[in-house]
Design a protein around this nucleic acid. Structure first.
Lengths: 104, 104
DNA sequence: CTGACATTTTAATAATTGTTTAACAATGGA
DNA sequence: TCCATTGTTAAACAATTATTAAAATGTCAG
């Protein structure tokens, strides 16, 4: 079970429109991820601002990054998202996890 | 499907240790809810601070409240939580909702 | 090596957030 | 009514956050 402090950190990381959009975009992109510049162009965010948000998401454990030449590729890491959804489902769904289960 | 703006609002509401604790406590308490003062005592939060957090959670649609005599009872409302978990599961789990499904 | 490109960092700033204290309703019992 | 109780609101403040512009870092092509 994830610790509340880590859950709070992950929630805070996603609780911002640009960062939620970044995460969604990278999830859709898959494991290969996407270069920072492409994300910036797609979401129309300045490089500096984007870098700031990447840092927040990465620090929360929601993103992985790898350098490829001059590019830095970011990709969604599902581990924390998984833990977060699990935490919410177990602790925040009235002792009845089914109430918040997807695909009902 | 919940709108991203509402998801962000709900995430932000829960992205704070005291508020996450409040929500968990009220979820555990069930539909009857709990008087503000009891929550304050249980979580050792000052009434004014608690009222501030109640407002944030209520405004995000995560809590309901009813007045009973001098007391105000707050209770978890699962609708938004449900929508939020659904949104995350559908949009943030790699097109593979099962990856974030609870009870794996 | 030099220059252009991709990204991060720093510094400055405005806006938002969380807490405290004190004052303000509202309710119900004596 | 008077008063104690319950909870909210208002004002002030420190701390955090998001954005911008500028400088710095790192990488490769020529």
């Amino acid at each position: 079970m994830m610790k509340p402090a880590q859950v709070v950190k992950a929630l805070a990381a996603l609780a911002q429109p640009t960062r939620l959009a970044i995460y969604r975009l990278l999830v859709a992109r898959g494991p290969e991820g996407m270069a920072a510049g492409q994300v910036a162009e797609k979401l129309k965010v300045s490089p500096a601002t984007l870098s700031f948000h990447f840092k927040t998401l990465s620090h929360a454990g929601l993103l992985d990054s790898r350098q490829d030449g001059r590019f830095v590729y970011y990709a969604a890491n599902f581990t924390v998202m998984n833990g977060m959804v699990g935490y919410l489902t177990e602790n925040c769904c009235g002792g009845n996890p089914a109430a918040c289960k997807p695909g009902k």
